[in-house]
Design a protein around this nucleic acid. Structure first.
Lengths: 254, 254
DNA sequence: GCTCGAAATATTGTATACATTTATTAATAA
DNA sequence: TTATTAATAAATGTATACAATATTTCGAGC
């Protein structure tokens, strides 16, 4: 019985459960922006008691998905389009700084092997003529790994933390951007460009070209902004809808 | 009785109390870096129950002063010198971006009035031949206000949040730097340089000179780094001591 | 019919009891 | 004496009861 509860980290299991479920609810649009999040509702839906619920609420608030209400408790935070651009921009800035620092350290061939593997795996996907949904989501995962590795190469815990925090916002997620479900064809072209930049950054790191590494990494985030813009103009209706589940759109990679 | 508890925000009073006390304990060096922070100890010292204590621990962990332990609970986070430089650097980067955005908006005369007042008040202090401790700490407060106003002028909630988070680290605090208690004379010269940069940024904002605003704001953080370096080399002993209360040094402004 | 107010409800903040896990200590054997 | 292990102690994670506050609803008065 207690053996069954040992899946994953047995420590703070209830809190984690509540946290994941709540985040999912927000991202899925079950909770609309601006709406209060009563603890008892979460107790009913998650089956855990109020204490871990409260811990999860605090965590999500720090993540930026919730904001404290003046009368106590939390409400789902609303993001407008400008804030999304800002978040992507800040991420780009921080990743640019990380790339610069990483390049300045002149990482060894061995240190870059993970990143090279990552780029190689993404190449294998991008080269294909057409992409399935599975391949697309594989690319998303690899892309997140790429960005994570890149930032890690800067060897700065402060920078890593800062990036992780800004990337906790779903629309600013590491190399993630919003794309309409039907736009897979367009997305493929974006992937090619994105991949070219990934490769350029890798080259710059290996060469110790810190300025180039920074500028390409910085530019890389503009791709995400452009994609956000494309998605925003293409289907303005569902996004602006009541400021509601503006995060509901399918998340994909760059 | 309940009337007396209404000092300040009656909401979450116990949590706030615990949070402030715990932060003070960390900054004062009552708790050494790497040390566990048992909840019961805080219960005894603060007089509040475990629930608000836990909330405070979570908050402080998000602030970066604590880090979760693998076996549960939290330990006081240790920072080495490199991380301090990093934090100041990241703050400078973000403030630079904020200054650029603020200047690009071409803020009106009225929008800049608070900032001008702030600079004026700091001028009045810096112009004096010698500084008392009170005047020095007045400058610290004004300086923090200046930085806060500057970032606010960018009108970006994302950027503001990011700066607030990095500045939550005491040694990266808005324009705050570490200075030896005895070095007030040296500090005065630093204040003059700092004030010159404050004025330059203000000018750049008024003129809409975004590039200049950014570069000066960026450079401004180098002053903080230099001061940290000076304090570090001047008295290496107490800071390196066991990685202990490295934050114990008196905090002052730039 | 509408507004203002009071009771009722709901929700949060706090305290505490319980269970499980981790750390410490004591004891025993090699 | 040292290492290993069992037992004790401590600390965290969780659940729930209680108190104070905010919100909603229902009704009275204009």
């Amino acid at each position: 019985m207690t053996r069954l509860m040992r899946n994953g980290d047995p420590r703070a299991a209830q809190t984690l459960k509540a946290q994941l479920r709540l985040r999912q609810m927000i991202l899925d649009g079950e909770l609309c922006a601006g709406e209060r999040v009563p603890e008892l509702m979460l107790v009913k839906r998650t089956g855990v008691s109020r204490t871990p619920i409260r811990a999860a609420l605090l965590r999500l608030a720090e993540e930026g998905l919730l904001e404290p209400s003046s009368s106590g408790g939390f409400v789902v935070r609303a993001f407008d389009e400008a804030e999304m651009y800002d978040a992507i921009d800040v991420r780009g800035m921080l990743e640019g700084a990380a790339a610069r620092r990483a390049a300045r350290r002149r990482p060894s061939h061995a240190e870059l092997s993970d990143l090279r593997d990552c780029v190689g795996a993404m190449d294998a996907i991008v080269k294909r003529r057409s992409l399935s949904v599975e391949q697309f989501s594989d690319f998303v995962r690899l892309n997140e790994r790429y960005h994570s590795l890149l930032v890690g190469l800067a060897r700065s815990s402060v920078l890593t933390r800062a990036v992780e925090r800004i990337a906790a916002l779903p629309f600013a997620s590491p190399g993630a951007f919003v794309v309409a479900q039907s736009a897979l064809a367009d997305a493929h072209q974006t992937l090619i460009t994105s991949q070219e930049q990934h490769r350029a950054i890798l080259e710059a790191l290996a060469a110790g070209a810190s300025a180039r590494a920074e500028s390409v990494a910085r530019e890389h985030s503009n791709l995400a902004k452009r994609n956000l813009h494309a998605a925003a103009t293409r289907e303005a209706a569902p996004r602006k809808a009541a400021g509601g589940n503006l995060i509901r759109l399918q998340l994909a990679a760059v």
